[in-house]
Every structure is written in C-alpha cells, then in structure tokens.
C-alpha cells in the first residue's frame, strides 16, 4: 500500500505523540521544570509588583527555552526512542516526512508548554500575557525553536559525551529567535502599536531555518 507524503507525516506525528503520552517522562520533565524555573526566577529576582511587569517576558521565554532544551536532551537520549527511530529509517517513507512529523509533534508539545507557562505566569505574576500579538510571537518563535531542536536531537543520539553538549549547540543557534521573541513580546506588553519588523524578522528566520533544516535532514539520517 502506497501512502502519500501527508499521510506519512501524520503517521510519524501520531507515533511520536503516542510515544510521549505513554512514556510521560519527557512531558513530566518539561512541565515540572517550567514550574520550578518560574519559582526560581521569582525568588532570585524577588519579583515585586513593578519589577514583575518588566521582567516577566524574559522569565517567560527563558522558561520556554530551558524547558524545551531539557525536552530535546531527553528525547535524544532515550534508548527506546532511538531504537524506534532506527526502525523508522528502514520504512519506505520519505525522509522529509519523518522530519516534518517529528517537528510537528515537538511543536504541538511546545505549544502546550507555552499555554501552560502562560497560565502559570499570568496567575503568579499577574501579568498581561493574553494578547493576540503575543500568541503570534509564541507561534513563530516556537516554530523556530523546534526546527533547530528537532534537527539537533537527531544528532544528539550519536553523541558520546552528552552532558552540556545540547545546550552549547542549541543555545547559540536559538538566541536570535529568542532575542526577537523577547523584543516582540515586550512590544505587545506596551500600549504602543506592535512594530511589523519583529513579525517580519521572525518569519524570515523561520523560513531560512525551515529551508536549511529540510534540506540537511536527509544527510543526518542517511549513513
């Protein structure tokens, strides 16, 4: 039976989501870390009423970055997931379908993390994070984050000395997107109209990264 590209993508997406829901380890780590990180920042910066509004955006994006980083690290080091990926490579599926399936699964999980963190930090810091432009920044920013994360996770399973390597590889590549997201989100917090240049910059970065990673991914998995 021949399946289409979209069907193949959906198949991989379904497989990854089912694996994460059944395994639960990665989800636990991500969401628990988001709570802990919020608490740590709250205590470390002694967030008071006025300071909160100014730093909440930074705290929010730092939480997303580090929680995702832990998730990618976990994803790349799970033995059962690696065995499953080895098996998937043998399946007659287009290489790009595997990549897009994994990317979509990671994006969905990151969006859930975003929603969870917004609820958490809106409540704890009494911040105004529910804004249409804010969600646009989150969607575009998280897409860039998972594009790089998914690519590097594929590499990560082959790395022998793993401690700290994922952070060193991912953070410099993700910093430009993080920087743009923070500035864009800050703009949404103020009363001034949001400048289109932030949206354009995020879209440009996402497009460059998607093109590059889509082209490079087959080289990563074909030995």
């Amino acid at each position: 039976m021949k399946i289409t590209f979209v069907q193949a993508v959906m198949l991989i997406l379904r497989r990854d989501l089912i694996f994460d829901i059944r395994n639960r380890q990665r989800l636990w780590i991500i969401f628990l870390f988001a709570i802990l990180n919020t608490f740590v920042f709250s205590f470390a910066l002694e967030l008071q009423h006025i300071l909160r509004r100014e730093v909440v955006v930074g705290v929010f994006w730092t939480t997303i970055l580090f929680a995702s980083l832990l998730g990618f690290e976990r994803q790349g080091s799970e033995g059962s997931r690696q065995r499953m990926s080895q098996a998937i490579k043998l399946a007659p599926l287009p290489r790009l379908a595997i990549f897009y399936g994994q990317l979509l699964a990671n994006w969905l999980i990151t969006l859930c993390l975003l929603l969870f963190t917004v609820l958490l930090q809106s409540g704890l810091f009494n911040a105004r994070l529910w804004h249409m432009d804010f969600w646009l920044a989150s969607l575009l920013g998280s897409l860039g984050l998972v594009t790089i994360g998914t690519t590097l996770t594929t590499m990560f399973s082959h790395i022998s000395v793993r401690v700290g390597v994922m952070s060193v590889l991912l953070i410099p590549l993700i910093l430009p997107i993080l920087l743009t997201c923070v500035r864009f989100t800050l703009a949404t917090q103020s009363e001034l109209p949001v400048r289109n240049e932030w949206v354009a910059l995020l879209v440009l970065q996402d497009i460059i990264l998607l093109i590059l990673t889509s082209w490079l991914y087959p080289h990563l998995i074909d030995e």
């Binding site: 690519t151 590499m155 790395i159 000395v161 970065q205 490079l216 080289h219 990563l220 030995e223």
Partner: peptide
C-alpha cells in the same frame, strides 16, 4: 563530542551549513 569519525564529519558538515544563518 562524537567518537565515530564518519558521523562526526557528516554532522559537523550539517552544523557548519546551519551556522551560516
């Protein structure tokens, strides 16, 4: 961080291209 020489070269090539971004 990668012991296997062939894998190291392949992954470094991918990262080298990505980094030009």
């Amino acid at each position: 961080a990668i012991e296997n020489v062939e894998t190291r070269r392949r992954f470094a090539a991918v990262y080298g291209i990505l980094a030009i971004f």
